[in-house]
Write a protein that binds this DNA or RNA. Structure first.
Length: 291
DNA sequence: AGGATAGCCTGCGGGC
DNA sequence: TGCCCGCAGGCTATCC
């Protein structure tokens, strides 16, 4: 499932061919994938970048923005199973392939290609915006600082602020995109394990040294995952259809019942926020963490 | 009012 | 072999 590393890797894989390209035509096969904000229906009567030239690709957390030269654009959320990829030549999209939108693109060399948005489970969607201000105030105003692009000290302060006096569990705060943007279930479990912190730790018990250690591991793991092309569990591929490889280095995610790679204790799993959570009962204590 | 929870949606794997 | 059920979770609305 796409989290920050998958979206950032996708952004980088799209950049060379999409920036500077002109969108000649847009086909929308399902109106209801056009959203006003995530999960909320918007107006399908939007150009969706038809006739625009792409100026740049931005990312905040798990969201990707295609920004046109005139400032308008499109935020793409991949949700659980979303993909943005170049269509195989000669193939037509639409029908039973879960391709919901398709852009006919003339790239910098004058070649015509087709970019497809595919999302079988439709947790994702497309949110058009009119300007940089519209993007910042309506779509991205509720996202916290980006987990990778923000300086570590800023993330640490943000995390401490979110946790202060909070009755939430630590992992719940990590998954909250308003506190820090980009962390999902996989990387939350991985970062907590690496930090020796228990996912069910009460947030208000997080100390400054906990927070500093956690932020350090969050950023390290996310950056490493970007370089590995993300984690491919089932659906994720980049714009060229390539899978990631970071799933091979997961320490806890998907390993419930197996031995901890650090101490051989059997990894435990439980539910938090209706999400499977895996941790090592020996490496991750519910009270104070490791030194 | 902060925090927990339901619901959206489809593919797949395990069990019978 | 084939069917059915449970699980996977990012995000919002709603309830408590």
């Amino acid at each position: 499932m796409p989290e920050l590393p998958e979206v950032e890797h996708l952004r980088r894989s799209l950049e060379p061919d999409l920036v500077g390209a002109r969108i000649e035509e847009v086909s929308l096969f399902r109106d209801d994938i056009v959203l006003r904000t995530a999960g909320r229906p918007g107006s399908p009567r939007h150009s969706l970048l038809a006739g625009s030239t792409v100026a740049r690709l931005d990312r905040r957390g798990k969201q990707l923005a295609i920004v046109a030269e005139d400032g308008q654009g499109l935020v793409i959320q991949l949700g659980m199973s979303g993909q943005v990829r170049w269509a195989a030549e000669g193939r037509t999209s639409g029908g039973n392939d879960h391709v919901h939108a398709c852009w006919r693109v003339r790239d910098g060399r004058g070649l015509i290609r087709r970019l497809e948005f595919r999302d079988p489970r439709r947790f994702g969607g497309l949110s058009p915006f009119d300007s940089a201000e519209d993007l910042a105030t309506r779509l991205w105003s509720r996202l916290g600082p980006d987990a990778v692009d923000s300086p570590a000290h800023l993330l640490t302060e943000r995390l401490l602020l979110e946790c202060r006096g909070s009755r939430r569990r630590l992992k719940t705060v990590l998954l909250d995109q308003e506190s820090v943007a980009g962390i999902g279930n996989i990387y939350a479990d991985e970062a907590l394990f690496a930090s020796g912190l228990h996912p069910f730790l009460l947030a208000r018990r997080l100390t400054r040294s906990h927070a500093e250690r956690l932020v350090q591991h969050i950023q390290r793991i996310l950056v490493e995952a970007v370089h590995a092309g993300g984690s491919t569990l089932r659906d994720y591929v980049d714009a060229s259809g390539r899978s990631g490889s970071f799933q091979h280095t997961h320490q806890v995610y998907g390993r419930a019942g197996l031995d901890c790679r650090r101490c051989s204790t059997t990894l435990r799993s439980g539910l938090l926020q209706a999400r499977t959570t895996v941790w090592c009962p020996s490496c991750q204590r519910r009270t104070s963490g490791r030194p």
